[in-house]
């Protein structure tokens, strides 16, 4: 173990971890927005919207995230989309995780007992009122854990943006492995920081889930 070297490079990794956090948070927000739209489309009454929703989920979950990033970042300029690596990373990861999160949201909404909807309609609630006042508040609780799993997956998945030269944790690790030839030490530093980020998110999900759990 080369501790002096580890201490010397550590500040670079802290900076890189901050980029990983930024990428993850921004693509999480984009992903949630995409997921809300896609989940609504998949559960709507219109056949066109339903087909679009299913197609979106199937394409984004049926192909590697790496390829989606490459199409956007390297292929984008050919169809007039010129993005900085950071922006391409956020958009690519967000569109990808949106497909997974849409399924988490849909699962939670479908997980709300059917009797709740029937009861609400019976006492005179409209469709929208039922959705807003009865179904969604209950579904929101059910989706905390699956969305948390998606978020943790997103943090680890954000390593992919190193391939389009965003200087985040994995990119920094790769660079320092190349310059120091000390893969174990460098992996240790990067792993420590990833674990820390994942741990914070997992704890937050635990707290939220416990606070809002239906019992």
């Amino acid at each position: 173990m080369d501790f002096p070297m580890m201490l010397r490079v550590f500040p670079f990794f802290v900076e890189a971890a901050w980029v990983t956090v930024q990428i993850s948070v921004l693509s999480l927000l984009l992903g949630l927005a995409v997921a809300a739209v896609i989940a609504s489309a998949k559960m709507s009454g219109s056949l066109v919207l339903r087909t679009f929703g299913s197609l979106y989920v199937s394409v984004f979950r049926g192909t590697p995230c790496l390829i989606q990033l490459f199409v956007l970042y390297f292929g984008g300029p050919q169809i007039g989309i010129n993005l900085e690596p950071f922006a391409a990373g956020v958009i690519g990861l967000g569109l990808n995780i949106g497909a997974y999160m849409a399924e988490s949201i849909r699962g939670a909404v479908l997980g709300v007992d059917r009797g709740q909807v029937e009861a609400a309609r019976t006492i005179g609630f409209g469709r929208l009122q039922t959705l807003r006042l009865v179904v969604l508040p209950q579904a929101a609780r059910l989706m905390i854990r699956p969305l948390g799993v998606n978020a943790v997956g997103l943090i680890k998945g954000s390593a992919l943006v190193s391939t389009i030269s965003v200087v985040e944790l994995t990119y920094t690790a790769q660079r320092f492995i190349g310059s120091t030839y000390k893969p174990f030490e460098i992996f240790g530093i990067a792993a420590l920081l990833y674990m820390l980020i994942v741990y914070v998110v997992a704890r937050a999900v635990d707290v939220l889930d416990r606070r809002y759990a239906i019992n």
Partner: peptide, 21 residues
């Protein structure tokens, strides 16, 4: 625990360069 908390890409670098180290 370590492999569930870190990205596959990072693990690939570890294995590829680590084995030769």
């Amino acid at each position: 625990w370590l492999f569930m908390g870190t990205p596959l890409l990072l693990q690939l670098f570890l294995i590829y360069f680590g084995l030769s180290q």
